[in-house]
Design a protein around this nucleic acid. Structure first.
Ligand SMILES: [Zn+2]
Ligand SMILES: [Zn+2]
Ligand SMILES: [Zn+2]
Ligand SMILES: [Zn+2]
Lengths: 135, 135
DNA sequence: TTGCACACGTTATACCGTTACACAATCGTG
DNA sequence: CACGATTGTGTAACGGTATAACGTGTGCAA
């Protein structure tokens, strides 16, 4: 059972999906991945979704809720995948992944104030990346 | 053109959709809304989606990305709809809406550090609400 | 009057994700 | 080894989410 970012012992389908996401420069939808992997033998959405579920579980891939898409984790020390924040460029689609202690603390504190048992944070910031911002 | 939370001058379809969301205790999907409003003459998804787009634009409704659903804004002074955070109970589906200055500041600061021109924040916390948390 | 903006209605289609069922490989245990 | 349990796989069918591409009617301003 793989752990952390060492992509050891992935199954064939998991490795295929992981490969597609790793080579991509931005997020991919499940169906885009499927199209890219048809020549490798994948034929049905479920094959992709099953692999994605595992990859997310292993911490190798993030799901971007506001995009209905998936992106390979690029952050070497990204341990706490439950509190990662993303900046998504609405123009070029690039994704910046960040984990910020202060942000996590504040969210935890807000949850406590509301007696809310926090399990997972979805934080997705939309806007324009540095390259796409007009001067 | 309506502004703020005074629901003035909504069109017929907008008023119908707003009514459904206001009476609901939690988030509703577009298709659930459609089903509820069939007797009122709504027949196609697009009619609901068009109304929802406007209601979100007016600041009367929030879209919850992680749920693919919509919820009426319950916060009287909810001005900055672009930085509202939500706590969503995975058990009962209830939604707590919060706007926190410190949180907004931290996000703004993180964006600035990355030269990211922040337009909209999606912050959705998943977990268990107070009522659903076992002792 | 003419053009424009906007709400509306309908059909069809695209995109996202799951259920249900069947089969094969693997693994720990008696 | 044999057995059951678990996990991965493959396929078909389906259901849920969202938009495209039409066309209609109304109000208003140039
Ligand atoms: Zn990561
Ligand atoms: Zn960009
Ligand atoms: Zn609000
Ligand atoms: Zn609850």
């Amino acid at each position: 059972m793989p752990h952390g970012h060492a992509s050891e012992a992935l199954t064939k389908n998991q490795a295929l999906v992981m490969g597609a996401l790793s080579e991509a420069t931005g997020p991919l939808s499940a169906y885009t991945i499927l199209d890219q992997l048809r020549d490798d033998g994948l034929r049905a959405p479920l094959q992709v979704y099953r692999a994605l579920d595992k990859l997310v579980e292993f911490g190798l891939v993030h799901r971007l809720e506001s995009l209905n898409a998936f992106v390979a984790c690029r952050q070497p020390g990204c341990d706490s995948h439950e509190r990662t924040a993303f900046m998504i460029c609405d123009d070029c689609g690039s994704v910046i992944e960040i984990t910020d202690k202060a942000l996590a603390r504040r969210l935890k504190s807000l949850a406590q104030d509301a007696s809310f048992a926090l399990k997972k944070s979805t934080i997705e910031l939309r806007g324009l990346c540095a390259a796409c911002t007009p001067m």
